[in-house]
Design a binder for these strands. Sequence first.
DNA 1: CGCTGCCTTGATCTTCTTCAAAACGTGTGG
DNA 2: CCACACGTTTTGAAGAAGATCAAGGCAGCG
Lengths: 252, 252
Amino acid sequence: MPIRRSTPLDDEWVESHMCSVDLRLHILSQVPFFCGLPQGDLAKINGQFIERGYEPHQTIYYTGDPARRLYVVADGRVKLIHHTLEGKDVTLDFLQPGELFGTLGLETEDAYRETAQAQTHACALSIGRQEFRGLLNRYASMALKVIDVTAERLRDSQEMVSQLSAHSVEQRVAFILPRLAEKLGEERPIGRLIQLPLSRRDLAEMAGTSPESVSRVVSQFRDQGLIEAGRRWVAIRDAEALQAVKAGTGPS
Amino acid sequence: MPIRRSTPLDDEWVESHMCSVDLRLHILSQVPFFCGLPQGDLAKINGQFIERGYEPHQTIYYTGDPARRLYVVADGRVKLIHHTLEGKDVTLDFLQPGELFGTLGLETEDAYRETAQAQTHACALSIGRQEFRGLLNRYASMALKVIDVTAERLRDSQEMVSQLSAHSVEQRVAFILPRLAEKLGEERPIGRLIQLPLSRRDLAEMAGTSPESVSRVVSQFRDQGLIEAGRRWVAIRDAEALQAVKAGTGPS
DNA sequence: CGCTGCCTTGATCTTCTTCAAAACGTGTGG
DNA sequence: CCACACGTTTTGAAGAAGATCAAGGCAGCG
């Protein structure tokens, strides 16, 4: 009964190394950290960044690589992954343009703790961590912004810990989907569509469960009319009902 | 066979509101954020902090309270908890003196997302978030330190997400114990003793499992000689073996 | 002593993973 | 345009892991 169209996702195509100087300036000025800086400074900062394009599934850096750079997503989506020794992967986050990854501070650790991978065609800007530190030292407002986004990420991560600790698979999926939709989604007739090709496996790695379990839950939600989902995409149809499931208030 | 002494923990007793001005200055100067500040500035900063003592299990703030202050643990241990709607509690972290909690930035959110509770007799200093922001603005080195510790906490939290997503209860306990021991522990003849009265329930809420399951795993580890544990305490005897269990390399 | 919590241990039951097979979509090449 | 082949998804059934329930033991304390 539910019509499963072929992918309703927008085709995003980011040519490798496509970012022109103007585009870069534009992107950097969009990034929250640089708001309020004089135009000249922005241009100088821009010069410190290196850009690079990535193919879908191409790795930006691996766990264990020397952590020398800080990255900003310029275009596309980037996935952060933890590999376990048993070979399972855990997806920590999907990043959208403007978000930071890589190494933030002059850390004691000098190896990346996670792997960063382009989920779509993507472009990222990066800067050496010493240079970034220099910027933070010079521009206090920037440091404050970095603190804000990092603190927010920390809270999100802790919320995830809470979900994983105390909730069922059904609840965890009902938690993940709206979160992704809010962050990466776009309003559509079908509902809020997650702008990212997401396999059952991708969702499973986010929710800490198996692809099969995700499939069952997704089917159930679809039958209940809470979501609309196809081969590699999901749209949220009834956010309140999902909220109820997530909280344990809802049906089954 | 294993001797279960009565609590080998040091009796820590922190009188409410005991912190003298000198002690406060000392504590603040110990806190990594204030390293390298001129002594005069430190005294001025000190004046902006309010101190308060707490009884064990006394709540410092509740989830949902308006998030107006930033706290620094001065003495004792503080526990950060997530409450779920079903009534389960999840322990996010135990904090030791020098660590921050409360609200960091000028956040969009204005309610605490977690509950902070004294685990032992404790003393905490606090400052209004606007004032704290003022300090960060003035002292760039302080902002950098805050970024460092926050980024470190984020990585820890993400590591926890990974553990919860992909590992068994046995592995999770083998992960939690050394982490607590390293952070809060002290070297003893029995092994590295966790300086905190920890019930099975406390451990369960940290590892995302039930007290009964923790009890079984703890008994098993004790029988294998990996740890020494009593009524409300644990000491690590064989860190390497625990490491192996945590990684799935070790024996069952 | 006897009481009160905490801890342990066993038994049962639910949930979820795993394995396996079939159905489906998608893209390909005839 | 159709048929095929591949990877993904769905679904079922078996099995494992862990939660829950319940009872008994142990320590500390009045």
